[in-house]
Amino acid sequence: MDNIEIIDPRFRAMVLSNAPLEELADGFRWLEGPVWFADHECLLFSDIPNDRVMRWSESAGISVFRQPSHFENGHTRDRQGRLISCSHRARCITRTEWNGQITLLADRFEGRRLNSPNDVVVKSDGTIWFSDPPYGIQTDYEGGKQERELPARVYCMDPQSGELRCVIDSFEGPNGLCFSPDETRLYVVETGLQFAADARHEIRVFDLQADGRGLSGERCFAGAHADGIRCDQDGNLWAATEDGVHCYDPDGTLLGKIHVPCRVSNLCFGGRNGSQLFLCASQTLFAIYTNCRGAQQP
Protein backbone atom coordinates (compact mmCIF):
# COMPACT_ATOMS: atom_id res chain seq x y z
CA MET A 1 0.00 0.00 0.00
CA ASP A 2 2.88 2.37 -0.74
CA ASN A 3 0.59 4.68 -2.70
CA ILE A 4 -2.12 4.72 0.01
CA GLU A 5 -2.05 7.34 2.75
CA ILE A 6 -4.31 6.65 5.73
CA ILE A 7 -5.24 9.93 7.42
CA ASP A 8 -8.36 8.76 9.28
CA PRO A 9 -8.59 5.11 10.44
CA ARG A 10 -11.91 4.73 8.63
CA PHE A 11 -10.09 4.91 5.29
CA ARG A 12 -8.29 1.63 5.99
CA ALA A 13 -11.47 -0.36 5.34
CA MET A 14 -12.17 1.55 2.12
CA VAL A 15 -8.98 0.52 0.31
CA LEU A 16 -7.34 -2.84 -0.37
CA SER A 17 -3.78 -3.69 0.64
CA ASN A 18 -3.39 -6.20 -2.21
CA ALA A 19 -4.90 -4.05 -4.99
CA PRO A 20 -2.19 -2.15 -6.92
CA LEU A 21 -2.48 1.06 -8.86
CA GLU A 22 -2.60 -0.28 -12.43
CA GLU A 23 -1.55 1.57 -15.57
CA LEU A 24 -4.10 0.68 -18.26
CA ALA A 25 -2.86 2.85 -21.13
CA ASP A 26 -0.67 5.86 -21.85
CA GLY A 27 0.58 8.05 -24.69
CA PHE A 28 -2.32 10.52 -24.62
CA ARG A 29 -2.14 14.32 -24.29
CA TRP A 30 -4.65 15.27 -21.57
CA LEU A 31 -7.32 12.89 -20.32
CA GLU A 32 -10.74 13.82 -18.95
CA GLY A 33 -14.37 12.82 -18.60
CA PRO A 34 -14.39 9.07 -17.75
CA VAL A 35 -17.76 7.29 -17.78
CA TRP A 36 -18.38 3.58 -17.24
CA PHE A 37 -20.76 1.50 -19.39
CA ALA A 38 -21.49 -1.62 -17.34
CA ASP A 39 -23.74 -3.08 -20.04
CA HIS A 40 -20.82 -2.95 -22.50
CA GLU A 41 -18.10 -3.54 -19.88
CA CYS A 42 -16.14 -0.56 -21.13
CA LEU A 43 -14.92 2.89 -20.15
CA LEU A 44 -15.19 5.97 -22.36
CA PHE A 45 -12.96 8.97 -21.73
CA SER A 46 -11.76 12.09 -23.54
CA ASP A 47 -8.28 12.80 -24.90
CA ILE A 48 -9.10 16.46 -25.34
CA PRO A 49 -6.11 17.96 -27.22
CA ASN A 50 -6.18 15.02 -29.64
CA ASP A 51 -9.88 15.77 -30.32
CA ARG A 52 -11.08 12.24 -29.64
CA VAL A 53 -13.04 10.06 -27.24
CA MET A 54 -11.37 6.77 -26.37
CA ARG A 55 -12.75 3.39 -25.32
CA TRP A 56 -11.10 0.93 -22.93
CA SER A 57 -12.20 -2.58 -22.00
CA GLU A 58 -10.49 -5.41 -20.12
CA SER A 59 -10.87 -7.74 -23.10
CA ALA A 60 -10.06 -5.43 -26.03
CA GLY A 61 -7.82 -2.74 -24.56
CA ILE A 62 -7.79 0.72 -26.14
CA SER A 63 -9.61 1.90 -29.25
CA VAL A 64 -11.00 5.16 -30.64
CA PHE A 65 -14.70 5.65 -29.94
CA ARG A 66 -15.15 9.01 -31.70
CA GLN A 67 -12.84 11.28 -33.67
CA PRO A 68 -13.21 14.15 -34.22
CA SER A 69 -15.15 14.77 -31.04
CA HIS A 70 -15.33 18.59 -31.14
CA PHE A 71 -12.94 18.53 -28.17
CA GLU A 72 -15.35 16.89 -25.79
CA ASN A 73 -14.53 17.00 -22.08
CA GLY A 74 -16.94 15.59 -19.47
CA HIS A 75 -19.36 12.71 -20.01
CA THR A 76 -22.13 10.94 -18.13
CA ARG A 77 -25.13 8.73 -18.88
CA ASP A 78 -28.79 9.72 -18.72
CA ARG A 79 -31.54 7.63 -17.13
CA GLN A 80 -31.93 5.69 -20.39
CA GLY A 81 -28.21 4.91 -20.48
CA ARG A 82 -27.38 7.25 -23.35
CA LEU A 83 -24.12 9.19 -23.46
CA ILE A 84 -24.31 12.88 -22.49
CA SER A 85 -21.23 14.91 -23.47
CA CYS A 86 -19.73 18.39 -23.01
CA SER A 87 -18.12 19.92 -26.11
CA HIS A 88 -15.48 22.65 -25.88
CA ARG A 89 -15.23 23.42 -29.60
CA ALA A 90 -18.98 23.39 -30.29
CA ARG A 91 -19.74 24.98 -26.88
CA CYS A 92 -22.66 22.69 -26.20
CA ILE A 93 -24.18 19.66 -24.48
CA THR A 94 -25.06 16.69 -26.68
CA ARG A 95 -26.67 13.28 -26.37
CA THR A 96 -25.52 10.25 -28.36
CA GLU A 97 -28.55 8.17 -29.29
CA TRP A 98 -28.46 4.37 -29.39
CA ASN A 99 -28.18 4.45 -33.19
CA GLY A 100 -25.11 6.72 -32.97
CA GLN A 101 -26.90 9.90 -33.97
CA ILE A 102 -25.85 12.97 -31.98
CA THR A 103 -28.61 15.23 -30.66
CA LEU A 104 -27.88 18.83 -29.66
CA LEU A 105 -29.37 19.51 -26.22
CA ALA A 106 -28.15 23.02 -25.37
CA ASP A 107 -25.70 25.54 -26.83
CA ARG A 108 -27.17 28.90 -25.79
CA PHE A 109 -28.64 30.64 -22.77
CA GLU A 110 -30.90 33.63 -23.31
CA GLY A 111 -29.66 33.92 -26.89
CA ARG A 112 -25.94 33.91 -26.07
CA ARG A 113 -23.51 31.04 -26.67
CA LEU A 114 -22.36 28.91 -23.78
CA ASN A 115 -18.67 29.08 -22.88
CA SER A 116 -17.22 25.55 -22.93
CA PRO A 117 -19.29 23.03 -20.96
CA ASN A 118 -16.89 21.10 -18.76
CA ASP A 119 -18.50 18.43 -16.57
CA VAL A 120 -22.01 16.99 -16.41
CA VAL A 121 -24.24 14.85 -14.18
CA VAL A 122 -27.80 13.58 -14.55
CA LYS A 123 -30.20 13.60 -11.60
CA SER A 124 -32.73 10.81 -10.99
CA ASP A 125 -35.53 13.01 -12.37
CA GLY A 126 -33.69 13.16 -15.70
CA THR A 127 -32.50 16.75 -15.42
CA ILE A 128 -28.99 17.44 -16.73
CA TRP A 129 -26.68 19.60 -14.60
CA PHE A 130 -23.44 20.94 -16.08
CA SER A 131 -20.66 23.44 -15.38
CA ASP A 132 -19.75 26.06 -17.97
CA PRO A 133 -16.39 27.75 -17.32
CA PRO A 134 -14.48 29.47 -20.15
CA TYR A 135 -11.44 27.13 -20.04
CA GLY A 136 -12.05 25.47 -23.40
CA ILE A 137 -12.26 28.74 -25.34
CA GLN A 138 -9.23 30.40 -23.71
CA THR A 139 -6.56 28.31 -25.47
CA ASP A 140 -6.03 26.51 -28.75
CA TYR A 141 -4.94 23.38 -26.88
CA GLU A 142 -8.36 22.18 -25.70
CA GLY A 143 -10.75 23.53 -28.29
CA GLY A 144 -9.68 26.82 -29.85
CA LYS A 145 -9.80 30.45 -28.74
CA GLN A 146 -13.22 32.03 -29.10
CA GLU A 147 -15.02 35.08 -27.76
CA ARG A 148 -16.76 34.68 -24.43
CA GLU A 149 -20.44 35.66 -24.29
CA LEU A 150 -21.57 34.54 -20.80
CA PRO A 151 -20.24 34.48 -17.24
CA ALA A 152 -19.08 31.18 -15.76
CA ARG A 153 -22.12 29.33 -14.39
CA VAL A 154 -23.70 26.00 -13.54
CA TYR A 155 -26.89 25.15 -15.42
CA CYS A 156 -29.75 22.70 -15.07
CA MET A 157 -31.54 21.49 -18.20
CA ASP A 158 -34.85 19.67 -18.50
CA PRO A 159 -34.41 17.47 -21.60
CA GLN A 160 -38.18 17.06 -21.95
CA SER A 161 -39.09 20.74 -22.11
CA GLY A 162 -35.69 22.03 -23.24
CA GLU A 163 -35.73 24.58 -20.41
CA LEU A 164 -32.24 25.71 -19.37
CA ARG A 165 -31.86 27.43 -15.99
CA CYS A 166 -28.86 29.04 -14.33
CA VAL A 167 -28.58 27.49 -10.86
CA ILE A 168 -25.16 28.81 -9.73
CA ASP A 169 -23.51 32.07 -10.73
CA SER A 170 -21.13 32.61 -7.78
CA PHE A 171 -18.08 30.76 -9.21
CA GLU A 172 -15.13 32.06 -11.21
CA GLY A 173 -14.42 28.61 -12.68
CA PRO A 174 -17.01 25.91 -11.89
CA ASN A 175 -15.59 22.51 -12.74
CA GLY A 176 -16.41 18.99 -11.52
CA LEU A 177 -19.78 18.30 -9.93
CA CYS A 178 -21.72 15.41 -8.44
CA PHE A 179 -24.77 14.67 -6.29
CA SER A 180 -24.72 12.88 -2.97
CA PRO A 181 -26.33 9.39 -3.21
CA ASP A 182 -29.62 10.64 -1.74
CA GLU A 183 -29.50 13.77 -3.94
CA THR A 184 -29.89 16.12 -0.99
CA ARG A 185 -26.54 17.73 -1.81
CA LEU A 186 -24.75 19.01 -4.89
CA TYR A 187 -20.96 19.26 -4.74
CA VAL A 188 -19.21 21.64 -7.16
CA VAL A 189 -15.48 22.26 -7.61
CA GLU A 190 -14.19 25.83 -7.90
CA THR A 191 -10.93 25.96 -9.88
CA GLY A 192 -10.88 29.72 -10.32
CA LEU A 193 -9.49 31.81 -13.13
CA GLN A 194 -7.31 29.73 -15.43
CA PHE A 195 -4.23 31.97 -15.61
CA ALA A 196 -4.48 33.69 -12.22
CA ALA A 197 -1.52 33.31 -9.87
CA ASP A 198 -3.91 33.18 -6.91
CA ALA A 199 -6.76 31.17 -8.43
CA ARG A 200 -9.34 30.01 -5.93
CA HIS A 201 -9.35 26.26 -5.28
CA GLU A 202 -12.04 24.59 -3.19
CA ILE A 203 -14.98 22.21 -3.22
CA ARG A 204 -18.32 23.80 -2.31
CA VAL A 205 -21.55 22.08 -1.37
CA PHE A 206 -25.18 23.12 -1.78
CA ASP A 207 -28.41 21.76 -0.31
CA LEU A 208 -31.16 20.82 -2.74
CA GLN A 209 -34.53 22.34 -1.92
CA ALA A 210 -37.73 20.32 -1.62
CA ASP A 211 -38.52 20.70 -5.33
CA GLY A 212 -35.26 18.94 -6.17
CA ARG A 213 -34.08 21.76 -8.43
CA GLY A 214 -33.43 24.83 -6.30
CA LEU A 215 -30.21 25.19 -4.30
CA SER A 216 -29.46 26.85 -0.97
CA GLY A 217 -26.91 26.86 1.84
CA GLU A 218 -23.78 27.39 -0.27
CA ARG A 219 -20.65 26.69 1.79
CA CYS A 220 -17.07 25.48 1.52
CA PHE A 221 -16.77 21.71 1.86
CA ALA A 222 -12.99 21.33 1.48
CA GLY A 223 -10.09 23.57 0.53
CA ALA A 224 -8.73 21.26 -2.16
CA HIS A 225 -7.16 21.89 -5.56
CA ALA A 226 -9.55 19.43 -7.17
CA ASP A 227 -11.05 18.80 -10.60
CA GLY A 228 -13.46 15.88 -11.14
CA ILE A 229 -15.39 14.42 -8.19
CA ARG A 230 -17.57 11.36 -7.49
CA CYS A 231 -19.46 9.97 -4.50
CA ASP A 232 -19.49 6.36 -3.35
CA GLN A 233 -22.60 4.60 -2.07
CA ASP A 234 -21.89 5.69 1.51
CA GLY A 235 -21.73 9.36 0.54
CA ASN A 236 -17.96 9.75 0.76
CA LEU A 237 -16.57 12.18 -1.80
CA TRP A 238 -13.61 11.13 -4.00
CA ALA A 239 -11.78 14.03 -5.64
CA ALA A 240 -9.22 14.11 -8.46
CA THR A 241 -6.34 16.34 -7.35
CA GLU A 242 -2.81 17.39 -8.24
CA ASP A 243 -1.22 14.58 -6.20
CA GLY A 244 -3.75 11.82 -6.83
CA VAL A 245 -7.13 11.14 -5.22
CA HIS A 246 -8.46 12.58 -1.95
CA CYS A 247 -11.36 10.91 -0.13
CA TYR A 248 -13.62 12.93 2.17
CA ASP A 249 -16.27 11.95 4.68
CA PRO A 250 -19.65 13.70 4.10
CA ASP A 251 -18.77 16.01 7.00
CA GLY A 252 -15.69 17.23 5.12
CA THR A 253 -13.07 15.23 7.02
CA LEU A 254 -10.17 14.14 4.81
CA LEU A 255 -10.02 10.35 5.28
CA GLY A 256 -7.10 9.42 3.05
CA LYS A 257 -5.30 9.73 -0.24
CA ILE A 258 -4.31 7.55 -3.17
CA HIS A 259 -1.06 8.96 -4.49
CA VAL A 260 -0.59 8.94 -8.26
CA PRO A 261 2.66 9.90 -10.03
CA CYS A 262 0.96 12.65 -12.05
CA ARG A 263 -1.93 15.08 -11.79
CA VAL A 264 -5.39 13.46 -11.84
CA SER A 265 -8.03 15.42 -13.74
CA ASN A 266 -11.06 13.19 -13.30
CA LEU A 267 -12.25 9.83 -12.04
CA CYS A 268 -15.20 7.46 -11.93
CA PHE A 269 -16.22 4.17 -10.41
CA GLY A 270 -16.89 1.19 -12.65
CA GLY A 271 -15.65 -2.29 -13.36
CA ARG A 272 -16.67 -5.27 -11.27
CA ASN A 273 -19.57 -4.31 -8.97
CA GLY A 274 -18.75 -0.63 -9.48
CA SER A 275 -15.76 -0.85 -7.11
CA GLN A 276 -12.93 -0.18 -9.58
CA LEU A 277 -11.81 3.45 -9.56
CA PHE A 278 -10.68 4.72 -12.98
CA LEU A 279 -8.33 7.71 -13.03
CA CYS A 280 -7.68 10.09 -15.91
CA ALA A 281 -4.20 11.23 -14.91
CA SER A 282 -2.56 13.67 -17.33
CA GLN A 283 -1.35 11.43 -20.19
CA THR A 284 -2.12 8.08 -18.52
CA LEU A 285 -5.21 6.03 -17.68
CA PHE A 286 -4.93 4.29 -14.30
CA ALA A 287 -7.29 2.11 -12.25
CA ILE A 288 -7.34 0.73 -8.72
CA TYR A 289 -9.79 -1.61 -7.02
CA THR A 290 -11.33 -0.24 -3.81
CA ASN A 291 -13.58 -1.62 -1.10
CA CYS A 292 -16.28 0.92 -2.02
CA ARG A 293 -18.91 1.03 -4.73
CA GLY A 294 -19.74 4.11 -6.75
CA ALA A 295 -23.01 5.90 -6.15
CA GLN A 296 -23.64 6.75 -9.79
CA GLN A 297 -25.65 4.55 -12.10
CA PRO A 298 -23.29 2.28 -14.12
Rank of each mutant, 00 (worst) to 15 (best):
M1T: 12
I4L: 13
E5G: 03
I7R: 11
V15K: 05
S17N: 09
A19K: 11
P20E: 09
E22G: 05
L24D: 06
A25M: 02
A25D: 08
F28S: 04
R29A: 13
W30V: 03
G33T: 08
G33H: 01
P34F: 00
W36K: 04
C42D: 07
S46L: 07
P49L: 05
M54A: 05
M54R: 10
R55S: 05
R55C: 14
A60W: 03
V64M: 07
Q67I: 02
H70F: 10
F71N: 00
E72N: 13
E72D: 11
N73G: 10
G74L: 08
G74K: 12
G74Y: 10
R77A: 12
D78F: 05
R79Q: 14
G81I: 01
L83N: 00
S85Y: 01
R95F: 01
E97Q: 15
E97N: 15
Q101A: 15
R108A: 11
E110P: 00
G111M: 01
R112V: 00
R112I: 01
N115V: 09
S116M: 03
D119K: 09
I128C: 07
I128Y: 07
D132Q: 09
P134T: 02
P134N: 06
I137D: 09
Q138A: 10
T139E: 13
D140K: 07
Y141H: 11
K145L: 12
Q146Y: 06
V154N: 06
P159S: 08
Q160D: 11
G162V: 00
L164I: 12
G173L: 01
P174W: 07
P174K: 06
P174T: 06
S180P: 09
T184Q: 15
T191V: 10
G192R: 13
G192F: 10
F195R: 11
A197W: 09
A199E: 07
R200W: 09
R200T: 13
H201V: 03
V205P: 00
F206E: 02
G212E: 00
G212N: 06
R213F: 01
R213P: 00
G214Q: 12
S216Y: 00
S216V: 02
E218K: 03
E218A: 12
R219I: 04
F221G: 01
F221Y: 04
A222T: 13
A224L: 15
C231H: 05
G235Y: 02
W238A: 08
E242F: 10
Y248N: 04
P250L: 03
L254Q: 02
L254E: 08
L255V: 11
I258H: 08
H259W: 05
V260Y: 00
V260H: 05
V260D: 08
P261R: 10
R263Y: 13
N266C: 06
C268M: 06
R272V: 14
R272Y: 08
N273T: 09
S275K: 14
S275F: 00
Q276S: 14
L277P: 07
F278P: 10
C280K: 10
C280D: 10
Q283V: 14
A287L: 07
R293S: 13
P298E: 15
